[in-house]
């Protein structure tokens, strides 16, 4: 049996498990996205769009080198931000999701709140 690694997802405190053979995103898609009130995953899976960018608080990953530097700048990579679609876990991890800023959905949300 493959060794199971534990990934803690902050700020939700949720723990998921997976192996070194999977990307962090693949693990999250099986056990995190679309569950417990989390939206389904909506990014490109290809290292282009930064939807899956997280901060790596603890642990080591094997990060693929082919990805868009617009999605993850070299300075961000040095500060331990990763694209989960391009990372395989090498140890237990703690990752933190980032706040997403999208003007259109903010507008729609504001509007539906005023109507309610």
């Amino acid at each position: 049996m493959k060794k199971q690694l534990v990934i803690r997802v902050e700020p939700y405190g949720k723990e998921v498990t997976g192996s070194k053979e999977e990307t962090v995103l693949e693990i999250l898609r099986k056990q995190f996205y679309g569950r417990d009130g989390q939206p389904s995953f909506r990014g490109c899976w290809r290292g282009g769009c930064a939807f899956c960018k997280v901060e790596l608080l603890e642990g080591e990953v094997n990060h693929n080198e082919i990805y868009s530097r617009t999605a993850l700048a070299d300075e961000e990579r040095e500060k331990n931000f990763i694209l989960t679609c391009q990372s395989q876990p090498l140890s237990d991890l703690i990752i933190r999701f980032l706040e997403k800023e999208d003007p259109i959905s903010r507008l729609i949300r504001l509007k539906s709140e005023t109507i309610k």
């Binding site: 939206p39 389904s40 995953f41 909506r42 990014g43 490109c44 282009g48 769009c49 930064a50 939807f51 868009s68 617009t70 999605a71 997403k100 800023e101 999208d102 003007p103 259109i104 959905s105 507008l107 729609i108 949300r109 509007k111 539906s112 109507i115």
Partner: peptide, 27 residues
């Protein structure tokens, strides 16, 4: 109008969740 924009973008599944991933993801 903004209150009907979700339907403007996806007329069938005008869900908040769909719109967020859609308009917020660019390259």
């Amino acid at each position: 109008t903004v209150d009907q924009l979700a339907r403007g973008i996806f007329y069938f599944n005008h869900r908040q969740e769909w719109i967020e991933g859609f308009t917020g993801v660019t390259t």
